[in-house]
């Protein structure tokens, strides 16, 4: 079969020209998202998660720009599109959910006006049908008394309810892909769980793929099929969620997993990765993680490891895994 994946990002490079030189914030990142798949993109703040999302939907803020690589939606390049066709893709084929619901909602219009307009722009139907669809969507995302609440303005809803409205809006045009950037980060724990459930269920029902961007490995564990771990603008590791969480291979992922306190653990100390993620103007030569890595070798300080295949569905960017099987060390 040669059907292209729903989304394919190949060697993506994002740069910021500054007075003191060009900063490379995303450095040759490659991954695919399959039809109906939820891909988690995880990393600490500043790793470049949001920039990847913004690059895909063509909303990088200048002077940030795509300086290399390509982005393909069902095999067609979308990184070089003009503003207008890109805007149509954003409205129709790729839906978006951001951390702050108010970036997606216009405070001056009712929820009905915003949903109906989105539906009518992208789906062939009359006003009454659009309203029916809108009410059904709101009902589906868990807005009580949807037929009445639809006439309210965004500020009439609580934070959690607003994020439900945004999810409805993101799905209104029946997109193929939803990019959700920290959709639950601003919400309380008890509300977070509800929003994650709604997002996951409704996308599954409608066959939409999801790129879920978050710093929270717990959210990824509950939601994603596969996870990509980002460090200093580069992919450290990518693979099925269960494999990566239970058997992390990249030393950074191993450290990250050990540093997360859990409800069941008994150890009195957390795993500590020394130091912190480098700034963009000070990314070390070779493997970006090498100064913090307990396994760093001569080669790690010299050459950058690319993503090396590990079995059928995993890739790891670490020299430890380049050697023959018997030389592979586990951390």
């Amino acid at each position: 079969m040669t059907t292209p994946p729903l989304l394919s990002v190949r060697d993506l490079v994002v740069e910021f020209p500054t007075r003191r030189g060009t900063l490379r914030a995303i450095d040759k990142v490659s991954f695919d998202i399959a039809e109906g798949e939820v891909l988690g993109m995880v990393g600490e703040s500043g790793a470049g998660k949001s920039l990847i999302g913004a690059a895909i939907i063509g909303l990088l803020e200048p002077p940030g720009r795509i300086a290399g690589g390509e982005i393909l939606l069902r095999g067609e390049r979308i990184d070089s599109l003009a503003a207008e066709p890109m805007r149509r893709i954003r409205g129709k084929r790729i839906g978006m959910v951001f951390q702050d619901p108010l970036t997606s909602l216009n405070p001056l219009y009712t929820v009905a006006e915003q949903l109906i307009e989105t539906i009518r722009t992208h789906i062939d139907c009359n006003d009454r049908e659009a309203r029916e669809r809108a009410v059904a969507l709101l009902d589906r995302v868990g807005i009580p008394a949807a037929a009445r609440r639809i006439n309210d303005y965004p500020h009439h809803f609580s934070g959690g309810m607003r994020q439900r409205v945004v999810i409805a809006l993101a799905l209104a045009a029946e997109p193929e892909l939803v990019i959700a950037d920290e959709p639950t980060t601003a919400l309380d724990v008890s509300v977070q769980a509800q929003i994650i459930d709604v997002l996951k269920e409704i996308c599954a029902e409608r066959g939409a793929s999801v790129m879920l961007i978050t710093h929270d490995m717990g959210v990824i564990a509950e939601t994603a099929d596969r996870v990509a771990v980002l460090y200093a603008g580069r992919l450290a590791e990518i693979g099925p969620v269960r494999d990566v969480i239970q058997h992390a291979e990249h030393p950074y992922t191993q450290g990250l997993m050990g540093s997360i306190p859990t409800l069941t653990q008994t150890s009195s100390r957390l795993v500590q990765i020394p130091g912190s993620m480098p700034r963009l103007d000070a990314i070390p030569q070779g493997c970006a993680f090498n100064p913090r890595c307990p396994h760093a070798m001569e080669r790690c300080r010299r050459d950058r490891p690319g993503l090396l295949p590990r079995g059928a569905d995993r890739e790891v960017a670490c020299w430890l895994y380049e050697a023959a099987e018997e030389e592979v060390r586990h951390g």
């Binding site: 724990v189 977070q192 769980a193 717990g218 959210v219 564990a221 509950e222 969480i245 409800l263 069941t264």
Partner: peptide
């Protein structure tokens, strides 16, 4: 309820 809301890292 709070405990149930915590994402399950242990899968």
């Amino acid at each position: 309820m709070l405990l149930d809301a915590v994402p399950d890292l242990a899968l």
